[in-house]
Computed example of a mutant assay.
Amino acid sequence: MARIHWPLLLLLLAAVSASADIYKSVDEDGNVSFSDSATDHSNPEKVEMSGLNSIQSPETRTGDELIEHLSPDDGSVVMYSASWCGVCDKARDYFVNNDIPFREYDVEERGRGKHDYRKLDADGVPVILHDDQRLDGFSAGSFEAMYRD
């Protein structure tokens, strides 16, 4: 009988599970779903999952010409978001509860949101713009520091 090398087997299983692919699909009603199998849904699109194993705090950037172009002159906030994004929901609730005027564009719909998001070279949502500043992600503290400046 063959002897099982448990540590080697566990390493092999960890490597297999870590390299799993994720697929996104949208049904005829516009509902978005994710799966680890391309056969679970019709028209699946493979999703790039780089850098998701690290935790990062929201990043603020300033001075970008593109940000200045995309930010409204009236001092309001622009948020690029996705319908499935819980952090986007948190940001939206914060803006509403604090009477902060904002415009929101869905990055997955055709039109301005998708177009601008590509130009911003972003890799996540939300992307929040105010004056000449950009916040990737959202936390109340990071947003307040950017907004009150």
Score class of each variant (00 low, 15 high):
104 E>W: 06
86 G>D: 11
119 K>E: 13
111 G>M: 01
102 F>R: 02
121 D>E: 15
108 E>D: 11
87 V>M: 04
127 V>Y: 13
120 L>A: 06
113 G>C: 12
107 V>S: 00
90 K>P: 01
129 L>G: 03
112 R>Y: 15
89 D>F: 12
66 L>P: 00
73 D>C: 10
67 I>S: 04
107 V>N: 00
134 R>K: 05
86 G>E: 09
94 Y>W: 14
105 Y>S: 07
108 E>M: 14
102 F>Y: 11
98 N>G: 12
98 N>W: 11
127 V>H: 06
77 V>R: 01
74 D>K: 05
88 C>V: 05
107 V>K: 01
111 G>W: 07
118 R>S: 14
124 G>M: 08
120 L>F: 10
72 P>R: 14
91 A>E: 06
71 S>V: 05
82 A>C: 07
96 V>N: 03
108 E>L: 14
80 Y>G: 03
72 P>F: 13
81 S>E: 13
92 R>L: 10
85 C>G: 13
95 F>T: 03
86 G>K: 08
99 D>W: 14
113 G>R: 04
93 D>E: 13
122 A>M: 09
87 V>H: 13
69 H>L: 12
124 G>Y: 04
113 G>L: 09
119 K>A: 12
119 K>V: 03
121 D>P: 02
125 V>P: 00
86 G>Y: 03
103 R>Q: 15
96 V>Q: 04
78 V>D: 00
110 R>A: 13
89 D>V: 09
99 D>P: 04
125 V>K: 02
94 Y>D: 08
77 V>D: 00
97 N>S: 12
118 R>M: 11
68 E>I: 13
105 Y>N: 02
69 H>K: 14
101 P>Q: 12
71 S>D: 05
90 K>A: 13
131 D>Y: 12
95 F>A: 00
108 E>S: 09
127 V>C: 06
122 A>N: 02
100 I>D: 00
106 D>P: 00
114 K>N: 08
106 D>L: 04
121 D>K: 14
118 R>V: 12
127 V>D: 03
123 D>W: 15
115 H>L: 09
112 R>N: 11
66 L>M: 10
107 V>Q: 01
72 P>C: 10
134 R>L: 09
90 K>L: 08
111 G>H: 11
108 E>H: 07
129 L>R: 07
123 D>I: 09
115 H>F: 15
122 A>Y: 11
120 L>R: 03
135 L>D: 04
96 V>I: 11
80 Y>Q: 06
69 H>S: 06
90 K>W: 09
92 R>F: 06
70 L>D: 12
132 D>P: 00
72 P>V: 12
83 S>C: 08
71 S>H: 11
88 C>T: 05
115 H>W: 15
127 V>Q: 09
109 E>K: 14
66 L>C: 08
132 D>T: 08
74 D>V: 15
117 Y>C: 00
135 L>R: 01
76 S>P: 01
68 E>T: 13
114 K>R: 07
129 L>F: 11
74 D>L: 13
